[in-house]
Amino acid sequence: MSGLPTQHAVPALVLAYFAYYGVLGIFIPYLGLFLDGRGLSSYDIGVLLALVTATRIVGPSLWAAVAERQGRPLLIMRLGAVLALFGWLSSFFDQGFWLLLLGFSIFSFFWTAILPQLEVTTFHFLNDNTSRYSRIRSSGSVGYIVLVLIGGVLLQSLGTESLPYGAAILMLLLIGSLFLLPELSPPTESSSARKGFGRLLSQPVFLCFMGAAFILQMSFAPFYGFFTLYARDLGYSGVATGLFISLAVLAEIVAFFWMGTLLKQRSYRLVLSCCYGLTMLRWLMLAYLAHSPFWLAVSMLMHAGSFAIAHSCAMHFIQHYFPKALRSRGQALYAGLIFGGGGAVGAYAAGIFWQDGAGSTQTFVIAAATAGVAMLFALCLPTQVHAVVSERTAD
């Protein structure tokens, strides 16, 4: 890998992560408020989020297969961003549940074409340097936090109908950043590698890893789908809610920055298990202590472990477990099953238990118990990922 393409790629990658997660900084925290403002019940919100999230189960793997067949991951990302914007346009029209479901499903399906290919592209340009990846990925956290803050102000001053416009602007910025990326030649996948992919998926260590991540993602559903409604019901303003979420993302940025050093010095299993245990404690704090600004702030700081460090551990696992030619498919499978499957099951369950706010405490307690189960799975993983690689190579 020559220095020139990488030098040109880094600014575009930083901008792409900023814009991609900036969209999510509007979409994830405030979508519940937006849908509530459109008159949907918590059950309707849960169903819509579950169905939309379910499109992420098959989407990443489908787009990864197309990207590998065509050998042009940048084209797939660009196409996905443009068509995702098309689906998002439905949010500009207040025509009830079904138009939103259709539009958001289109948005979500094509949105899944972006991140797995962006992750693989980033590692490709950085020659698998985890430390540099974490620092570039932190620009996504910056984008998220900036848009969370702006979104909180806009929602309080202009109302929830300002959300579609903010997200659309960020999608246009994302499209522009993807066209700034230089072309690359990803490694080709041999027939033996294709056969080996199925064998890798059946290994107990991989099943254990995916099971832990799937269950943990389920536990995040009440937070992603209903936290802004929860904060509003507790008496927090839109600006205050945005500040609390921003505090979580600030902790995430710091964690991403130091993640490479952290994994080099400690047991992979220990780090991941601690993250999952911290997540369990975090949901319990939201259930019983969220009325206190101090304890709510403490729970938000735990996002550094429950998301940032846990996510970096997952990326570290994928990059070391799969050979280069299969990493795109590995990333796509992870994104589809974890964020799609785990997110969809969790969103549907949260919509049932939430009961328009009456079951909020119960829902976060269930989420804590779910995270505890994920921690038990994580404790069964090997101490270091390189041990997994050695066993795989020996096969």
Rank of each mutant, 00 (worst) to 15 (best):
Y144D: 07
F294P: 00
V58N: 00
I352G: 09
L296C: 09
G3M: 13
I253T: 14
H124Y: 05
H291G: 13
Y20L: 15
M210N: 08
L281D: 03
T279E: 06
C313A: 14
T363D: 11
F294K: 05
L51A: 11
I366W: 15
G242V: 12
R232S: 15
G46Q: 10
V205Y: 09
V205E: 14
V66Y: 05
N129C: 12
R269I: 03
E391G: 03
T53Y: 05
D395F: 13
I106T: 13
Y165P: 02
H320C: 11
S139E: 05
V389T: 15
G346C: 04
L83G: 08
L289H: 14
G235M: 12
V120T: 03
L173S: 02
G211I: 02
L49W: 10
V239G: 09
P73G: 01
F209C: 06
P204C: 03
Y348F: 15
T53E: 00
S219M: 06
F107H: 10
Y321C: 00
S202R: 13
F220Y: 12
L15A: 14
S312D: 01
V388D: 10
A387F: 06
N129Y: 11
P182R: 04
Y224I: 11
F206Q: 06
F322W: 04
G198Q: 05
I215M: 11
S108M: 12
L174G: 08
S139F: 07
G357A: 08
A12H: 07
Q156Y: 07
F179I: 02
F110K: 01
V249I: 14
L284I: 09
L51R: 08
V389A: 15
P293W: 08
L172D: 10
S108I: 08
L270A: 15
L33M: 13
V389C: 03
A50Q: 00
Q265W: 01
D94S: 04
V239P: 09
G159F: 10
V142C: 04
H291L: 11
R392E: 13
R266S: 05
P5F: 11
Q331N: 07
F104L: 15
A297D: 05
P382V: 09
L270E: 13
G71K: 01
G330F: 09
G140E: 01
D36M: 08
G342Q: 12
A251K: 07
L99R: 06
S41D: 03
A255R: 02
I215H: 10
T122C: 00
A371C: 12
G336Q: 01
S328D: 07
G305T: 06
L49E: 03
G140T: 08
R194Q: 10
Q217V: 09
S42G: 12
A167W: 03
V148S: 01
L49C: 03
S90K: 06
Y20W: 04
H291V: 13
A84V: 04
L170S: 12
S191P: 07
I150Q: 08
A9M: 06
A344L: 09
S328I: 04
G46H: 08
R329E: 05
A394K: 12
I106S: 01
A332K: 00
V14R: 07
L216V: 00
A287Q: 12
I352Q: 15
L154Q: 10
S185I: 14
R392L: 09
F109L: 02
Y276W: 08
F220C: 07
W283E: 11
A287E: 13
V373I: 15
L333V: 02
A287P: 10
